[in-house]
């Protein structure tokens, strides 16, 4: 991948919570347009905090977080230019699937035919056409997560932030959603920041992996993933995939060895 202009630039970002906990200890990171970057690390390494800072949901204690999104002024919460998927589906249980996905438009104050079409398109992109009028409690965990992804994609964001979105799902659902996410990324090419603690998932999905160590959170390795694209399930059994997983695992083990014991 050619290093085009960065979409996200972090310089010396630290985060100390009111409790005194130092979540991030100086993070420098540049994410290029169209990149699929995984933040990989053990729990407590500040991955989620970093993602919230990028989303503008938290302020860094020191350092700079600079966003350069198309058509949006730098460093503002660019409504609709960022999509966010949490570890839980985070749906409104009182609203139907369609109403949940339509939420960004409803907040923006325009839900007309064009927006309804985009809701339908977004739902069919995640394989949920026909479920518009269902309520979240009628869906399986995997389907709820698909709704959550459809909602994040409906505004066609430049930047998609995913915070361990598949961690709570079973292995089969997880693999299926991995493939769907790759297809969606290849179709629209948003820049993706993907938080995970699974080595195999990060290697399969990403074009680049930033390995983090905990207490305080820091990026200790920055590894490009040179696997063929577009990827499909065949990649998972290739020798190159196994070798990359080995490399990343070693980097993660080294990161853990540097950190104080939990």
């Amino acid at each position: 991948m050619t290093m085009s202009e960065p979409v996200v630039v972090l310089r010396g970002v630290t985060k100390r919570f009111a409790s005194g906990l130092e979540a991030l200890g100086g993070v420098d990171l540049a994410v290029a347009r169209g990149e699929f970057l995984s933040l990989l690390g053990p729990s407590g390494c500040g991955k989620s905090t970093l993602l919230r800072i990028v989303a503008g949901l938290a302020e860094p204690t020191t350092g700079i977080c600079d966003l350069r999104l198309a058509g949006a002024p730098s460093k503002s919460i660019a409504a609709g230019r960022i999509g966010f998927v949490f570890q839980d589906p985070t749906l409104m249980p009182w609203s139907t699937v369609a109403r949940n996905v339509e939420l960004p438009f409803r907040i923006a104050g325009r839900v007309r035919a064009a927006e309804r079409d985009r809701v339908a398109a977004s739902l069919s992109a995640v394989g949920l056409a026909g479920f518009e009028q269902a309520y979240p409690h009628q869906l399986s965990g995997g389907m709820r997560m698909r709704v959550s992804i459809a909602r994040a994609l409906v505004t066609e964001p430049d930047l998609l932030l995913l915070d361990e979105p598949f961690a709570a799902l079973d292995e089969i659902t997880r693999l299926a959603l991995n493939d769907d996410l790759l297809l969606l990324w290849e179709a629209h090419r948003p820049t993706i920041l993907f938080v995970t603690h699974s080595v195999f998932e990060s290697v399969y999905l990403s074009t680049r992996i930033a390995v983090m160590r905990p207490r305080p959170g820091r990026i200790v390795a920055d590894l490009p993933v040179r696997l063929p694209q577009p990827r499909d399930r065949g990649v998972r059994t290739s020798a190159a995939y196994a070798a990359m997983c080995e490399t990343v695992s070693t980097a993660l083990a080294a990161a853990m060895a540097q950190a104080p014991a939990p």
Binding site: G56, I77, F86, T90, I107, A108
Partner: peptide
């Protein structure tokens, strides 16, 4: 829900919208 609140903020919801929709 705290995450839903964060999502509403991300999409630039006003306090009135947060009250009404959430």
């Amino acid at each position: 829900d705290r995450n839903l609140l964060a999502l509403f903020r991300l999409y630039g919801a006003s306090p009135g919208q947060i009250l009404l929709y959430l």
